[in-house]
């Protein structure tokens, strides 16, 4: 079912607000939340980036749209603790109240682990595998994407479902997020770069001559088209 994060092509938004070239963080809570999330992945509290994204996607739409980007990261970590029986009802709120009343945040330094982990974050290579002979499609193939409505996490945006495009590249093999997000194992599939005529996706709303590309897992593809 479509959730708040799946905004590609949604109408009604206003103009963009450019900035002056920023990167990094805007507030101390953003700085902390970034590292908290990386540690939650590194320490195995959250099993994969897919589980993490699915956690963000389960925010109620009104909460999703009202939240700061890093604020949206709180919920998946809370959920992971709760799912492991490590967070009781009301516990986070109580702790926040204690901190508001002057309690300090405890510190735990683990230099060896931290140096190794930060090094890994900053140098890790691809998590994918090269393409092999089992790839079902090849560059130049015209394909139709599935017109499905999955109940859980997927990386097939609503706007692309049922649409026809052309495969331009085989990227390699990657783990299917739809299954890993709900901790049902690692299913490896080929991923492909698909090119669409934007008007074939959005109709006359799209600007003429515009191309749109999308990366898809093989099981998102319904069929070869003539």
């Amino acid at each position: 079912m479509r959730r708040a994060h799946d905004v590609g092509g949604m109408e009604g938004f206003g103009p963009l607000t450019p900035d002056s070239g920023e990167y990094g963080f805007h507030a101390d809570f953003e700085r902390r939340m970034f590292g908290i999330t990386m540690c939650a992945l590194g320490k195995g509290l959250v099993s994969s980036v897919d589980e993490f994204r699915w956690g963000v996607e389960q925010l109620a739409p009104e909460e999703y749209f009202a939240s700061n980007y890093y604020e949206r990261w709180i919920s998946p970590i809370e959920r992971a603790l709760f799912d492991r029986g490590q967070l009781g009802p009301g516990e986070l709120t109580r702790r926040a109240q204690e901190i508001a009343a002057g309690a300090s945040v405890p510190r735990l330094d683990e230099p060896e682990w931290s140096d190794g982990f930060v090094g890994f974050v900053r140098t890790a290579g691809s998590f994918g595998q090269p393409a092999d002979a089992t790839a079902r499609y090849k560059p130049g193939d015209r394909i139709r994407l599935k017109d499905v409505d999955p109940p859980v996490h997927t990386r097939l945006p609503t706007y692309a479902r049922g649409k026809v495009g052309v495969i331009e590249r085989v990227h390699g093999r990657n783990i299917l997020p739809d299954v890993r997000a709900v901790k049902q194992g690692d299913v490896w599939e080929h991923t492909y770069l698909i090119v669409f005529d934007a008007q074939a996706v959005f109709g006359e709303r799209a600007e003429a001559g515009q191309q749109l590309t999308l990366d898809v897992w093989e099981s998102y593809i319904e069929s070869l088209e003539a």
Binding site: F25, A27, D28, F29, R31, R32, M33, F34, G35, I36, M38, C39, A40, G42, K43, L45, I74, I77, E78, L81, Q86, L87, E91, L92, T93, R95, A96, E98, I99, A100, A103, V105, P106, R107, L108, D109, E110, P111, W113, S114, D115, F117, V118, V121
Partner: peptide, 26 residues
């Protein structure tokens, strides 16, 4: 900000966070 501090505090206690890793990543 309070909720993030509360989360960091709970994660430290449960062994899911190294404070110096958060500092270094930031």
């Amino acid at each position: 900000s309070l909720r993030v501090k509360a989360l960091e505090s709970l994660l430290v206690e449960r062994g899911y966070l190294a404070t110096d890793a958060v500092d270094k990543l930031a």
